[in-house]
Design a binder for these strands. Structure first.
Lengths: 210, 210
DNA sequence: CGCTATATTGATTGGTGTCAACGGGAGTGG
DNA sequence: CCACTCCCGTTGACACCAATCAATATAGCG
């Protein structure tokens, strides 16, 4: 979509999912971030983004041209505060991810990803401050995976085959059920969380002690 | 050192190295960041840090108590701009790291880490803007590793043994030479870069196209 | 109803983790 | 000054998880 180009705009994701990725010269590619609704795209104060952005679903962006945005930022200092806040959140997510990539097994990685998506699915409402609110659910939970197996694999640093195998394994264990290829049903969230390798399960996404 | 505590101050690293880490309940620990000179410690606008900080060398910090700092930030909007800038840099580094952890072999990880340290070692001067300036070197380069093998392993998501083995392998290949345990000599930087798995080698640290 | 992309499953290999033994330097105490 | 110990690093043998190669199945779509 855009590759290291100068971005003439910044944007906020309204709906859909986009992926941030980088590529090694030998062709290996890594997803280094996922942008979902309310996430911010662009580098305030910077010219260039530094990685590729690809839409992986229908995507609605709220765009601002760069120069007006920068001058607006000069006028309203509080805007920068908010951007800093977003950047720090991103940083937390990135650190959780680093933890995941470095020290988790394939099974735990898959479970963690599903748990994060379950959390996203369960986060349907927002508080007055714009912070997502977790809706605790006891019953079964349905996740609409927007990601293909390949993208999950890239996301987790695995191969497609291993990804598929671990999903099958979780299905056999009864931790999840599949409905088509990209819809996952979680009968008991706790069982899924138990597979993630950290007892918090959502790795701080749920109630991070930031 | 400090674990998830409320930090009553923010700080800038003057000299030395500190590590940011998180721990999984079963005891697996992951370094999720390294703080070196000029790096910033603390979360402007936040109460709590969210991960552990440990000094791994003599460490000199330039500390500010939180409340005065926050009010200073309110007075001087430009300060927040600078903090945002730092956060975005951190984000870039985190993304590079994610790439490294997810798609690189043990050999490439070690080489990448050494390359980064070589870059740090070669960065002796700073431009007027405070940006480090890379001093291109053709001759041999000496790196003072502050890190123990264990910390390198945690940093890279490897075990101590694998770390040691890969270092030995690079030594056998003549890519590096050891002088004691924590001093590395790089006769030809290009040969080291060739082992990192990305032709840029320094993973954007050298001349990131941000 | 095929065609293609995506996903699953199987067989095998290889890289990294694990367990275990050994080496060497620094500090300590006799 | 030497013996002892402890910590860190190295090296080896082996096991195991995930990658790779390969075949098949399924879903999506014209």
């Amino acid at each position: 979509m855009w590759a290291g180009d100068q971005l003439s705009f910044v944007a906020s994701v309204v709906r859909g999912v986009a992926r941030l990725s980088q590529t090694l010269p030998d062709g290996r590619t890594r997803v280094v971030g996922l942008l979902m609704s309310s996430d911010f795209l662009g580098r305030p104060g910077r010219e260039v983004l530094g990685c590729d952005v690809t839409a992986i679903s229908d995507l609605t962006l709220c765009c601002f041209r760069r120069e007006p945005f920068e001058s607006l930022r000069a006028e309203i200092p509080h805007l920068t505060d908010r951007l800093l806040d977003l950047a720090l959140d991103e940083m937390d997510a990135a650190r959780d991810w680093i933890l995941l990539l470095g020290r988790k097994t394939a099974r735990e990685k898959i479970a963690s990803l599903l748990a994060i998506c379950a959390w996203r699915a369960g986060t349907t409402s927002y508080s007055a401050q714009g912070k997502p609110v977790w809706q605790p659910t006891t019953g079964p939970l349905t996740i609409d995976l927007v990601l293909s197996r390949e993208m999950m694999a890239d996301y987790l640093g695995l191969t497609i085959e291993t990804t598929s195998r671990q999903i099958s394994a979780l299905k056999t264990l009864g931790v999840i059920a599949l409905e088509g290829n990209r819809r996952v049903i979680v009968p008991d969230l706790r069982r899924l969380l138990a597979e993630t390798g950290d007892d918090i399960g959502l790795m701080g996404h749920q109630q991070r002690q930031v």
